[in-house]
Structure formats: C-alpha cells, structure tokens
Simulated assay, not measured.
Amino acid sequence: MTKKKKKYTFRTFINDVHLWLGVASGIILFLVCLSGTILTFEKEIKSFFKEDFIVTAQTELLTIEELRDKLEKEGEVTRVLIPTTHTTPYQFTVKTSPKQRRGTTYYVNQYTGDYTADTKTAIDDFFMTMFKLHRWLLLDIPIGRPIVGIATIIFIILSISGIVLWFPKKLKWKSFKPGFKIKFSANWKRINHDLHNTLGFYTCIFLLIMSLTGLCWSFEGYRNIASDVLGAKVFGNRGGGTKLTSNLKPHESPVSIATILDTVNKEFPHQGKIYLSFPPNETGVYSVRKYNEEGLSPVISDQLKLDLNAKVRSKEIFAEKPLNEKITALIKPLHMGDIFGLFSKTIYFIACLIATSLPVTGVIIWINKLKKKKKRKPKQ
C-alpha cells in the first residue's frame, strides 16, 4: 500500500518559512545579536576600565566661563555636562579640529580648572568594532547597512512565525504546559528544542521591540513611514531641533552662565544633571537638557532654549508631550534597552544573549530532523 501524502497546511507553510529564513540568515543574525549583547553594557564596561579623574570638593567653584576659557586653547568648546554631585568632574565637549563631528570629552575639575582629555583605549576600539559589526557587519556602510536591515526584517518574520509555531495544535492547557518550561531531565535533543522554543517565546516581545526600532537606522523609507504612522518625526531632534537666533537688543548685554543656570533650575526645579550647549555664534541661543534623577527613566530630559539674556525662547516638558512624540523620542533608548536604566539593560542583555543562541539551536534542530528523515528513508 502507498502511504497517503500529508496535507500541506498553513502550519506547515509557517514552519517552512521559519526554517528556511532562519537557515539563510543564521550567520548574520548570530553576529548582529552577539554584537548587540556585548554593546548592552558598553558604558558600564568602559567606565570600569577608565582611570578615575578625582575631584575634591572645595568651598568655591570656578565659573563656567573661566573653565571654558581654559579649554579654548584645545579647540571649540561646544557644551558642558554639569553633574549633581560635588565630587564628579564637569565634562566639556571640545571640537579639537573642524573635521570632528562630535568632539572630544574633557574631564574638568570645577574647583581648580585642571583637566584631562578622554583618551581612546583598546576597550574603546573593541566597542567601536562591535558597533560597526552590529550596524554594518564591518562592511562599507552602503553595503552593510541594507544587509543588516534585511536580516532584521527576516528576524521579525522569524519572531512572529516562531510564536505561531509555539502554539500547540490542540489548544488545551495540557498541550500548552511544555512550551513554558525547559525539560532538563530529557535527552540533549529535547533540551535543545526547549531552549529554542521556550526561550524564544519568553524573549519574543523584547526582540520585536529591538527589531522594529532597529530598522529606523537601516532604511530611510521605513523611518519616514514610521514618522507618518506616529505623526511625529523619528530622530527629529538629531540636528538640535529648530534653530533660533538671539533677540538680544543692541543695548542689552549677555548675562552670565550662572544666571542661565538659575533660570534652568527655576523652570525645572527637580534634581538632575544638566547638558548646556553654548550658542554656536554671537547670534545663537543656549540649548539645555535637564534630567530628573528621581524620574522613572534616566534617559528622559526636559528641554529649554534660552536667549543670551536668559529669557525662555522654548520649553519642552517630556511628561506633557503627546504619546506619539514620546514614542518617537524614545526610539533609541527602546532599541538599546537603557530606557529604565540597569533594570531594563539587564533584561535586554539576557534577551540578546538568547537571541544569539536561537540561530544555533535552530540549526541543530534542523540537522536533527534531516538525520531523522535519512533513517526513515527506505533502502532501495
């Protein structure tokens, strides 16, 4: 008797899509997820290996103007980070050459004016390599970026199809139970299957968030569509927002930076570090971001633009923004996992680590199935 052919069901189709897309993109997804895992705690690892710039609190602070004047021999001073603690140095950003886009960080003792540049180390080089691997696979940007983007789209399809396959054929609690746990007492093939199936289920929501936000860096078209759907520009503040010019009248003199900071603290009375960007020219204005250290998220800031006479030109309180603008402003921290500080970073690290393992466990499942089919094949 000839065996009846099994029907090609929707579930079989989803299984085939999941299998072949996973096999085709496995190496790329492994490298992207591995580098993403390493980058999760980049700041913490870098700070651990850096030499401490020790500041001893004294009775009198030097003014920001005095500190800036000392640094101007190094290049164009563009901004300063003012911490909340007295023993943490100020951090000035200095463009040491016109070619520099972001500038060099200088740690400055706010009491003595002593400073040191944040020099690059082997750790910095390592993380830059991981960044390039994560974003462009160490290839030229025009080649590597779309490859990573396409792999990310595949990862989204794999995540969704994986959830569909996680659901058992019979929707009964008895059938659901095995999908929630890893049976470590079973043989290695079953453990490998559970590692893929169960861990993939638990991390799916985080992997989808990472993937959907990650595409904003890969494709301009996707970014524009996301902006249209959300009704707010994704990465809209990359250029610093609206460029304002000073309304200072000819008979008026610019106020001191101390007065500017007083205005900032009156507008935003909460405790938190302050990023103060200096006017780019004589007709520019101050741009300020202040973080609330007691807030829910350490990456959320309220923003001000202040004229040279300390008058408020624009004010943005994050809590008062519409939901769509909040979402677009949080695309980067949502992707990187630092939206809730160490707590969310730890979750993202575990999720990324699991994501790195999924191509490996998936390929092992596929190889085991191929071996099983060969054994079943009747000899001629």
Rank of each mutant, 00 (worst) to 15 (best):
K5L: 14
K7N: 14
F10C: 05
F10K: 04
V17S: 06
V17T: 13
G22D: 01
V23R: 12
S25F: 06
I28M: 03
I28G: 06
E44I: 02
I45D: 05
I45W: 00
K50I: 02
E51I: 03
D52A: 11
E60F: 11
L62I: 05
L62V: 11
E66C: 08
K73M: 09
L81F: 13
T84P: 08
V94F: 03
S97W: 07
P98D: 08
T105Q: 05
Y107N: 04
V108D: 09
A117W: 06
A117H: 00
T119D: 12
K120G: 03
A122C: 01
F126W: 03
M130K: 01
K132G: 00
H134Q: 08
H134W: 01
L137G: 00
P142M: 09
I143Y: 14
I143C: 04
T152R: 05
F155S: 15
I156W: 06
S159R: 02
I160W: 02
W166V: 11
W166T: 09
L171C: 06
K172I: 14
K174V: 13
S175I: 12
F180I: 10
K183S: 11
A186Y: 12
W188M: 15
H193C: 03
D194R: 10
H196A: 10
F201E: 00
T203D: 04
I209D: 00
G214R: 08
L215R: 01
L215K: 01
L215T: 01
F219V: 09
G221M: 05
I225F: 12
D228S: 15
A232N: 13
V234E: 03
F235R: 10
F235P: 02
G236W: 15
G240M: 07
E252G: 06
S253I: 13
V255K: 10
S256R: 05
V264A: 06
N265H: 10
E267Y: 08
G272F: 01
Y275Q: 12
Y275G: 01
Y275L: 11
S277W: 12
V288T: 02
R289F: 11
Y291H: 11
G295P: 04
D302T: 08
Q303D: 05
L308W: 00
N309E: 12
S314I: 12
E316M: 15
I317M: 11
I317A: 04
N324S: 15
I327F: 10
L330H: 07
K332A: 10
P333Q: 07
I339R: 04
I339M: 08
F340M: 07
K345N: 09
T346V: 14
F349K: 00
C352Y: 01
I354C: 09
A355C: 06
P359F: 05
I364L: 11
I365L: 14
K373M: 10
R376E: 14
K377V: 07
K379H: 10
